[in-house]
């Protein structure tokens, strides 16, 4: 689905490389979390997948980026958008209309989806996100979590093969954040959507993603399955990424020889690990 071959990128007018020697390949249906300190190049990476880099945010682009079979340098962001859906953190500024229903219709209309298919697509997108009751509402009247779900629905209506999200839960409370991640998981299971999500909340990533990419200073510092990376809590911390607390606990227990389980990714797993150790 995604293949990045030796990508380096420097914003026009900037001295430093925002991305450096990036090599990634992501298969269809993968759920990939991208994490790392501020300024590590996470957003730039996300924008390279949607073609915003280098078409809108210009600069020196080296290497080749293939997304769903298209070379992003030779394809416009609008064309790429047929297979790549994007959701940003600042949900307010990604809306193009004022009503929920119009917002979902917007991209369908632009991409000339057959008119008779539209009602079904809109319905399905609203139902999938669990916001059927918001259909007639004004976007101004929605809460932060609801707005983020509308933005997701608007993108999902196009049935993208790849969904790229840049800190979609930044402004959301814990419960809404989990809800958004659950919806993504659902889309992956139901439609086989490939998901790449930039996120600071590592606990969410551990629970929902199957692969983690840690970035630092424009490079890929670590890349592996969630459990592989959780086995290296010290490296993570050195890169400015915190571990979930249960992972730190597991590392301690392992160091003392109390457990030899894989690091837990959620509370029930951690409970099992501790109970085993004390029984």
């Amino acid at each position: 689905m995604i293949r990045l071959d030796n990508i380096s990128f420097k914003y026009a007018g900037s001295e430093a490389f925002a991305l450096r020697d990036i090599n990634i390949s992501v298969g269809a249906g993968e759920f990939v979390g991208v994490i790392g300190p501020a300024g590590a190049g996470k957003s730039t990476l996300a924008q390279a997948l949607s073609g915003v880099v280098p078409h809108v945010r210009r600069g020196d682009f080296y290497g080749a980026a293939w997304v769903d079979g298209s070379d992003t340098v030779n394809t416009t962001p609008a064309e790429l958008a047929r297979s790549v859906g994007c959701v940003f953190q600042d949900v307010e500024s990604q809306f193009a209309t004022t009503m929920v229903e119009d917002e979902i219709l917007y991209a369908l209309e632009n991409f000339s989806v057959p008119r008779e298919d539209m009602p079904e697509r809109v319905n399905q997108a609203l139902l999938d996100m669990g916001i059927g009751d918001l259909r007639e509402r004004s976007l101004f009247s929605l809460s932060g979590g609801q707005k983020q779900k509308v933005a997701l629905a608007a993108v999902m209506a196009l049935a993208p093969k790849l969904l790229v999200l840049d800190e979609p839960t930044g402004e959301l409370d814990p419960k809404s954040s989990v809800q958004v991640l659950r919806l993504l998981q659902l889309m992956r299971e139901k439609r086989g959507t490939t998901i790449v999500i930039v996120e600071q909340k590592i606990m969410l990533l551990c629970e929902f993603a199957d692969r983690l990419i840690v970035m630092d200073k424009g490079r890929i510092a670590l890349d592996g399955s969630v459990r592989e990376l959780l086995n290296q809590p010290d490296q993570l911390l050195e890169l400015g990424v915190n571990c979930p607390r249960v992972t730190s606990l597991a590392a301690r227990m392992k160091a003392r020889g109390w457990t030899n389980r894989e690091p837990p990714i959620n509370i029930p797993e951690a409970e099992r690990m501790v109970r085993e150790a004390i029984s």
């Binding site: 949607s50 915003v52 809108v56 416009t76 962001p77 609008a78 958008a81 994007c86 940003f88 500024s93 990604q94 809306f95 193009a96 917007y106 991209a107 632009n110 991409f111 000339s112 608007a154 993108v155």
Partner: peptide, 10 residues
């Protein structure tokens, strides 16, 4: 940017 990514020019 968001409008462009959702097919504004099409």
């Amino acid at each position: 940017l968001a409008a462009e990514l959702r097919g504004f020019y099409l």
